[in-house]
Design a protein around this nucleic acid. Structure first.
Lengths: 121, 121
DNA sequence: CCAATAAGTAACCATTAGGTTACTTATTTA
DNA sequence: TAAATAAGTAACCTAATGGTTACTTATTGG
């Protein structure tokens, strides 16, 4: 995956409606847009635009048949990113296990104390 | 991580300047924005805005000291996503190994043939 | 003290994202 | 064949992104 493709995939993932759409497609392979529409609060066209973003990112693949367009999740881009991170951050993560535990439990990262030592000017 | 946080993290990742910034900070912990500026083609303010996006996503943490602001990578959000994907897609990925190999080698996903059986109308 | 330096703010601009309604096309099926 | 249905296009709107220049603080070092 080149940088442009990474942009596209991450941007596609950066929206909860799209992530939900991915989840639904993963759970119901071959479903169509109209079938999924009831799960969302947005218009069909709005949802179709989200779908197009996922198609552009190759996160969903479509195989049009007649007037219907069955949808399938393609997890390959996710897997490629997953694998890259595994290599890239293995050591980093190993050394950060303590902080990770803390962050998971508290929903906050400890080191983010911006030490305002300038208060009195 | 809630949905809003996921939006923020993925959006932060969806830009190659920001990913490069993360990489540089990971490689040089404690560096400052000005030091990294030479690596980019954009203005300092432009880069600072990218940095702010990373800070908002908790992918970078800053600990201001005097007039400098040393920067550090925080890989925790990446690790959380990584772990979630591991659980969520383990079976899916296991069943898709063949397609994965193909996609990696050809830079394309095989199933994306949109079979235009409607040509003659 | 004062000049150099690191960072931060404000205001602006062009493009993209995320959504809408209205209309069109293609395919089934009663 | 005609109505119902699934999908697609066009045009529009608002807000957010990604960038700029000009100016302001705050801190440090000579």
């Amino acid at each position: 995956m080149n940088e442009q493709q990474l942009d596209t995939v991450f941007l596609a993932l950066a929206n909860s409606s799209r992530r939900q759409l991915m989840d639904l497609i993963a759970a119901r392979p071959g479903c169509t847009l109209s079938q999924l529409l009831t799960e969302f609060d947005i218009s069909r066209i709005g949802l179709m635009k989200h779908l197009q973003v996922l198609l552009d990112a190759d996160l969903v693949i479509a195989h049009k048949q007649g007037r219907e367009r069955p949808l399938y999740l393609n997890a390959v881009p996710l897997q490629l990113i997953h694998e890259r991170w595994s290599e890239q951050y293995r050591d980093f993560w190993a050394s950060q296990l303590t902080r990770l535990k803390y962050a998971v439990e508290s929903q906050a990262v400890p080191a983010k104390i911006t030490t305002k030592t300038k208060d009195k000017a």
